[in-house]
Amino acid sequence: MTQVNALEHWVDTPEGKLFAQDVKPQNAQGVPIILLHDSLGCVALWRDFPKQLAAVTRQRVIAYDRLGFGRSDAHPGRLRRGFVEAEAEQGFAALLRQLEIDDFIVFGHSVGGGMAVGCAAIHGKHCRALIIESAQAFVEGLTLQGIRAADQQFAAPGQLQRLTRYHGDKAEWVLRAWVDTWLDDAFADWNLDALLAQVQCPLLSLHGDQDEFGSPAHPRRFTALAAGPSVMRLLPGCGHVPHREQTEVVLAEVQRFLG
């Protein structure tokens, strides 16, 4: 497998510093792939996937902790409707500026997939491809059901420590930012339809047919509404985290799509 080297960066934003991991394979080719994590995620929770992705694509892979997550600074307030779309002009834009990135490919998991749609739409002149995994295109009953169940699980003694391991004293904020935002009545009719209509680059939508946070209605909506060419892959027997549950399948699909 191609040898890769990892660097660390601290990205300045008006609200605090963001942590980023920059994986560079030897003899890197093409444009960087930028990873956007899920609602409870961070760089560390991608585990070895960035290195595996860099090795098989021979492209630079950059993952960063959004404000409030992982090793990045704390978020100054609560998340509000519009936070998914806003990331493209906030942390993501700051990363592009500081690392002097021009063209890119964006890869987002879960809510990070929704943010990736925003990045592809708003930075359309520079986005060469969009890859989304287990992403939500709208607020679905199954998504809310999964969030309520997870909230109950985290209420059990010791469960919040699972998040503390990755987010430190920001763990409670991370959980509430996910649960309270999605369950808020003001978020009930949220969707990505308008942004999808602005996505001109090729789109790959990966989704597990056993995803506990979203039905196949999401990848169907992504591929139906995106303005550019799109491919949908429904992964049999897979849940909400395909890059962990079916790593080799995801890597092969990405290779095929980018090839």
Rank of each mutant, 00 (worst) to 15 (best):
A197Q: 15
P236N: 11
L192T: 02
A94M: 01
A155E: 13
A194V: 14
A121N: 02
P14G: 11
G124E: 12
T143L: 15
G124F: 01
Q3C: 06
G259T: 12
G259Y: 11
R221P: 00
A88N: 00
E253C: 02
F257M: 00
K17H: 12
R58S: 15
M115E: 15
A55Y: 06
G208L: 04
H243K: 04
I34A: 07
Q210R: 15
I62Y: 07
D151A: 15
D103K: 15
A135H: 04
S39W: 10
L40G: 06
E100M: 10
G112Y: 04
A194M: 09
F257K: 00
N191V: 00
A155N: 14
L195R: 05
Q198W: 04
P236S: 10
V23H: 05
W10E: 11
T13W: 06
A55R: 03
V179Y: 06
I34M: 10
A177D: 11
H75F: 15
R165C: 03
G112W: 04
A135Q: 09
R244M: 13
A197M: 11
R256N: 13
I62H: 04
A171D: 05
S72H: 08
W178Y: 13
D211R: 03
A150P: 00
R66D: 07
R66K: 13
Q145N: 12
D180G: 02
G214R: 09
R221M: 12
S205Q: 08
Q246I: 10
L235T: 04
I105N: 04
R71C: 02
V43F: 08
A197T: 11
V174Y: 07
L18Q: 06
P242W: 10
Q246P: 01
R165D: 12
G70N: 03
A6Y: 02
G239V: 11
Y64Q: 01
R220W: 06
Q3H: 13
K125M: 01
E253P: 02
H109W: 15
Q152W: 02
E87L: 14
K170Q: 15
G158K: 04
L40P: 09
L175I: 02
D184P: 01
F19S: 04
C201G: 08
P76E: 08
T181A: 12
L251K: 03
A54L: 08
A150C: 07
A63C: 12
G91Y: 07
V23F: 06
G41A: 03
P202F: 09
I33H: 10
A135D: 08
R148H: 09
W173H: 12
H240P: 06
D189G: 02
F107Q: 06
Y166C: 01
K17V: 03
V61K: 05
R162E: 12
V179A: 06
H123E: 11
G118M: 03
V179E: 07
V139N: 14
L206P: 05
A226M: 00
S72F: 03
G208M: 09
R256G: 12
S72P: 01
